[in-house]
Design a protein around this nucleic acid. Structure first.
Length: 108
DNA sequence: GGCGTGACGCAAT
DNA sequence: AATTGCGCCACGC
């Protein structure tokens, strides 16, 4: 069984340490997908019922904006989860984004 | 088997 | 400098 592209995305997302975030494009690039950042976002859409749960709240777009927050059960759930991990979120934007940014390509 | 979709990213204007 | 539009590629129907 070869893991699908999506499964690889989920695996990378699960590798994100607590208190850190990454971007869709960074994950895509780490997987060698290049510019298929959209696939990563689309994968998250299917990650809702995956097990173990995928910490999609730690994945934001390259601007640090919580673009996917609306897809969570509650639009505020994503921000609360991030703040709970020590990440400051204001106006749907991750503060100190560059500081909390975690590059999967470096870990992998 | 072919078309549309999509939680992004980037270039061009 | 900001905004708009287009491209990319795997999955679902």
């Amino acid at each position: 069984m070869e893991p699908s592209f999506y499964e690889q995305v989920y695996e990378v997302v699960r590798l994100i340490p607590q208190g850190r975030v990454t971007s869709y494009g960074a994950i895509a690039k780490a997987l060698g997908a290049g510019r298929s950042s959209r696939l990563v976002g689309y994968a998250m859409n299917l990650a809702h019922d995956l097990q173990p749960p995928v910490p999609a709240h730690r994945v934001v777009n390259h601007k640090g904006l919580l673009t996917g927050k609306f897809h969570f059960r509650g639009s505020d759930l994503m921000q609360e989860l991030l703040e709970q991990e020590g990440i400051t979120v204001e106006n749907d934007q991750v503060q100190n984004f560059k500081t909390v940014f975690w590059d999967p390509a470096i870990e992998i």
